[in-house]
């Protein structure tokens, strides 16, 4: 039973504060969405969780152990991180790319073992990328590449998967495929999945719990239906939205447009 505990995390760049007193817990088998507008500190929060950035204050623990005190390999065994972008300067094959994820499970001078190949195979199978295994990564489309990156995080065999805008730049079809894959991973493998996204429609449909971040602070937190309310949308995102339960899809957010109050404010600002 894995438990991720974020306690009182603050982070700032020299010029400005990014995160202020962020505090939450998350457990195995849940999909946790972190939502917020551009520049609100969502990605920074993910990077603080896996210790890419060190928080100025506060602590992140996995099963009671501080992430900051772990070695890089130990962190990688605990959590996989799928970033927004992939470099393709030197195009490795998909198989080689995914095999890299085994690094944290191998000793210093290990070579690929039969077991590693099996695990890579399974991850390729799970993410539907097996048929590309022999292709170079730069020959794939954005959606295919994203799935390969998830496969690579999976072979680390982590309990926690951190995803930074996994559906960004994907067409609507691939967005659903990807979110279905993520749901499957959490339900079947019992992984804790933390998704950073600004897509409210997908967050409503797929997340068990949601944390809304505004200016680096938690503005609302709880089960998805309690957070994604018409009122919160207006307050946090300046968005008019209709939220209803649809028996076909579950929680359904229909975005109507920018808030009236907000455009009023804009006009006033323009006038002055």
């Amino acid at each position: 039973m894995v438990e991720l505990d974020i306690e009182d995390v603050c982070f700032s760049y020299p010029s400005r504060d990014i995160l202020k007193d962020v505090e939450f817990k998350a457990e195995q088998g849940e999909i946790l969405g972190i939502i917020g507008q551009n520049g609100c500190g969502k990605t920074t929060l993910l990077k603080c969780i896996n210790s890419t950035l060190s928080p100025k204050k506060g602590i992140v623990t996995v099963d009671g152990k501080a992430v900051e005190s772990m070695t890089k390999k130990e962190i990688a065994r605990n959590m996989g991180f799928v970033m927004q972008t992939t470099s393709t300067t030197f195009p490795f094959t998909v198989y080689e790319t995914v095999m890299m994820g085994r690094y944290s499970r191998q000793d210093a001078l290990d070579t690929e073992k039969e077991e590693d190949t099996r695990i890579v195979y399974q991850a390729l199978q799970d993410t539907g990328t097996l048929k590309f295994a022999d292709r170079d990564i730069d020959e794939l489309s954005g959606g295919e590449r994203r799935r390969v990156m998830i496969a690579r995080a999976l072979v680390q065999e982590p309990d926690i998967l951190l995803l930074d805008e996994p559906t960004l730049h994907l067409d609507i079809n691939h967005q659903f495929d990807l979110m279905d894959l993520i749901t499957k991973l959490s339900r079947e493998k019992g992984m804790l999945i933390v998704i950073v996204t600004h897509d409210l429609v997908l967050a409503a449909r797929y997340c068990d719990r949601v944390i809304a971040i505004e200016h680096g602070e938690i503005a609302a937190m709880g089960p998805t239906r309690d957070v994604l309310t018409t009122e919160n949308m207006r307050r946090i995102f300046d968005i008019e939205a209709e939220v209803n339960e649809d028996p076909r899809v579950g929680l359904n957010v229909t975005i109507l447009g920018k808030s009236k109050a907000d455009s009023e404010k804009d006009r006033q600002r323009a006038a002055s």
């Binding site: 890419t52 070695t71 962190i75 065994r77 991180f81 970033m83 992939t86 690094y103």
Partner: peptide, 23 residues
């Protein structure tokens, strides 16, 4: 030669390499 695997991973992106456990 000793760091050949890490060089592969770093050449594919430093931050990603770090996420996969490379110091």
């Amino acid at each position: 030669v000793l760091i050949n695997r890490e060089l592969n991973m770093v050449s594919a992106g430093e931050e990603q390499a770090a996420n996969m456990g490379v110091n």
